[in-house]
C-alpha cells in the first residue's frame, strides 16, 4: 500500500471484491481503472502462468470500475448496504439461538 492512499478518510460506503485468481490473465487494466489505487499484481503466478490482481479491500469503495473493464469477468464486487444490514439484524434477532455456518 502506498503512502498517498493511507491518508484518505474512512468512507461511508465500503466495498469488497472477490477475484477468481485462477482465471485472471494479469492484464492490469483493472489497476488503471481503480481510482483508489487499490489494486496490485501478485508476486505469485496462477495456474495459467499469470500474475493476478490483488485488491486491497480497505481502499475499495465498491464502484465496480475494475470489474467492468475486466475482460475476463473475474472480479465480483460487493458494497455495504444499510438496508441489508437492518434486514440481517432483524433475522439475527429472531433466530439468535440458531447456528450460522461460517466458511473459513
Amino acid at each position: 500500500m502506498s503512502d498517498n492512499t493511507t491518508a484518505k478518510k474512512p468512507r461511508k460506503v465500503k466495498g469488497k471484491t472477490v477475484v477468481d485468481i485462477q482465471k485472471c490473465k494479469g492484464c492490469e487494466i483493472c489497476i488503471t481503472a481503480c481510482s483508489e489505487n487499490g489494486i496490485k499484481l501478485s508476486k505469485e503466478i496462477n495456474n495459467l502462468g499469470y500474475r493476478y490482481a490483488v485488491i486491497v479491500d480497505d481502499l475499495c469503495t465498491g464502484c465496480t470500475n475494475c470489474a467492468l473493464v475486466c475482460p475476463d469477468g473475474v472480479i465480483k464486487v460487493y458494497r455495504t448496504s444499510a438496508k441489508k444490514k437492518e434486514l440481517v439484524a432483524e433475522i439475527k434477532n429472531v433466530q439468535s439461538d440458531m447456528k450460522i455456518k461460517i466458511d473459513k
Partner: peptide
C-alpha cells in the same frame, strides 16, 4: 457490515468457458 453483491459477470448468458483471447483483449 453487510456487503451486497453489486457486480458479477453474467452467469446465464456466458457459458463460463475461459475465453481464448489474449490478456486485456477488448473482445472479452
Amino acid at each position: 457490515e453487510v456487503y451486497e453483491l453489486v457486480y458479477e459477470k453474467p452467469l446465464t448468458t456466458l457459458t463460463g468457458t475461459r475465453m481464448h483471447y489474449c490478456p486485456g483483449c477488448g473482445h472479452s
